[in-house]
């Protein structure tokens, strides 16, 4: 127990887990590792099939829109920036600015999801969705490409939505004062989660959109 909060009444509560920012961050990092390995496993599957069906993956990837993918990448990067700035703002005691930046982060998350939904929708309109006749008529490699495309972007989008919900939660807690400059770790951890979502997209984007 080394943090300032615990030092005050060290003797009364020796070794009772209290507010320990370092432990919380460590716990969050360990959780992020599980997320990394979870996506990592899907990336392994992607890599294996990319190696097996290189040509078909190229064909599949060519049917995706690079401008849309790039736009969404920039949106997520920007949301990461606003998230980082929000933490920086709260560290300096600027609560209002911090909340404003969180709102921008959520807005970016929403924009990302809307664009993603249009992208999926366009594919659906072309008859490309899991189990569709059109898809099943394609070459096997292309079926694998689109199967992985929907799986990976789907799981990622789910994480974006969860991340946005968490940001709204931490926003409410900043408002109520439960998260503040002195007790900022909760916001730090949500920030870490959000950057992880961005991090995964950084790898998803070139692997899915740019193999053409």
């Amino acid at each position: 127990m080394s943090n300032a909060a615990a030092h005050d009444d060290h003797h009364a509560h020796y070794g009772v887990p209290g507010y320990d920012p370092v432990a919380w961050k460590m716990g969050m990092w360990l959780f992020l590792f599980t997320e990394l390995l979870l996506f990592g496993a899907v990336f392994i599957a992607y890599a294996v099939y990319l190696e097996t069906y290189t040509w078909h993956f190229t064909v599949g990837s060519a049917q995706l829109s690079i401008p849309i993918g790039t736009f969404n990448t920039l949106v997520l990067l920007t949301s990461s920036l606003t998230m980082a700035l929000s933490i920086a703002a709260l560290q300096r005691g600027k609560k209002e600015l911090s909340i404003k930046l969180l709102d921008m982060t959520v807005a970016c998350a929403g924009l990302f999801c809307v664009v993603k939904a249009f992208e999926w929708g366009a594919k659906f309109e072309h008859g490309i969705y899991p189990g569709s006749e059109h898809l099943l008529a394609m070459a096997r490699g292309e079926q694998m490409f689109f199967g992985l495309y929907f799986t990976m972007t789907g799981i990622h989008a789910l994480h974006v939505i969860i991340g946005a919900a968490l940001i709204l939660w931490v926003r409410a807690r900043i408002k109520s004062g439960a998260v503040s400059t002195e007790r900022i770790t909760f916001l730090d951890n949500i920030g870490l989660y959000w950057h992880l979502v961005d991090l995964i997209w950084i790898f998803l984007f070139p692997l899915i959109y740019l193999v053409a």
Partner: peptide, 12 residues
């Protein structure tokens, strides 16, 4: 959902 990951008939 019928996505192909391990299904050999879809190339998995």
């Amino acid at each position: 959902f019928g996505v192909g990951i391990f299904n050999a008939s879809m190339g998995g």
